[in-house]
Nucleic acid binder design. Sequence first.
DNA 1: GATTGACATGTCATTGCTTACATGTCACCT
DNA 2: AGGTGACATGTAAGCAATGACATGTCAATC
Lengths: 187, 187
Amino acid sequence: MSLRIALLGLLTAYGSASGYDLTKGFERSVAHVWQAGHSQIYPELAKMTADGLVTVAAEGARGRKIYSITPEGRAELRAWLIGHDPSGPARSEVALQAFLLPLLETREALDVLERLKTHMEHKLAELEALRAAKQAASAQEGTSGVRFGDLALDLGLRQVRTSLQWADDAIAQLGRQATTEEGADPS
Amino acid sequence: MSLRIALLGLLTAYGSASGYDLTKGFERSVAHVWQAGHSQIYPELAKMTADGLVTVAAEGARGRKIYSITPEGRAELRAWLIGHDPSGPARSEVALQAFLLPLLETREALDVLERLKTHMEHKLAELEALRAAKQAASAQEGTSGVRFGDLALDLGLRQVRTSLQWADDAIAQLGRQATTEEGADPS
DNA sequence: GATTGACATGTCATTGCTTACATGTCACCT
DNA sequence: AGGTGACATGTAAGCAATGACATGTCAATC
């Protein structure tokens, strides 16, 4: 269901777009919020056309099909935004690793945490680059107010920073434990 | 793959357990980290038995099968913890709603944010209850140090708090925008 | 003229996951 | 004796998602 919504949202933002454009859109702006490859997008667009949520407005060069959203599509999107209670299945590989970490020896656990931290630093850098790019783009036009995707980007940035902090604190905590263990048990 | 890991992890923690026990375990402790119903767990246990990662150690009353982890299973779990780079597909319905929020009118967007906030407050309460229960349990025994699931619970709590903060700030920001709009356009 | 690479759209097999169906045991209460 | 509800294990249909396969156009470079 959510894939449909994401597509309808992008289509609203773009006015009209091809499957290819939307695939690129997923790689860029929405990537940190929802993911989908072209092999999922093309069939979904076909289904949505059959359901009357989008239409092929025009066909361009190289078999390019340009979709645009229909009133039914707009209604569907609106209804989801207003009425949908997010219950997204909590599935996080990072959290799972964190959960199981005490199964490892302290040294090994520290290594894993360091790797996780590096990973998060990369992600933070990506998101900050994205924000910088957005700000540069919006400075050119005189647009003001909250723009498409801004709130989600802010949320993403905050969450990555929180995760980083957690990793730091977890490393410190395990580090303390390791040294007291050494002191208590100098084998 | 991650389901296998979660099962191996729980099995290590419990020593040995039936499919039913593991299903309950998913509802309780791991719920905020990974989810799975019994219809996914039973077949997976069968496959893992075939692959030699677990064995049926005993059969109890009511057809109860008690599984325990094998050395191969332990190795698999260890290898994943140490070597797996978490790349978990970023798919969050909350973030998607946040992303698309500017498509709504300010008033409607504020309503959605309030609902999200309530939702997050419930989740926060759940996690805090879980933490309280854990602390009570560990106070009875004299266990010290970092326990199974503690780090993940801490991460979860921090992330929910961050999300709540974000919601509050987003509400404030949209609220300001709404009042300036009224002032500029008193139709 | 040939190759490279971005553009552009699709299918298919497999795996993961959800929901519903289906069956049966055992303890306790009435 | 019958009902309820926790215990216990499975199967099957169908949707969602991934990764690999497959095909073809067009512009620019070599």
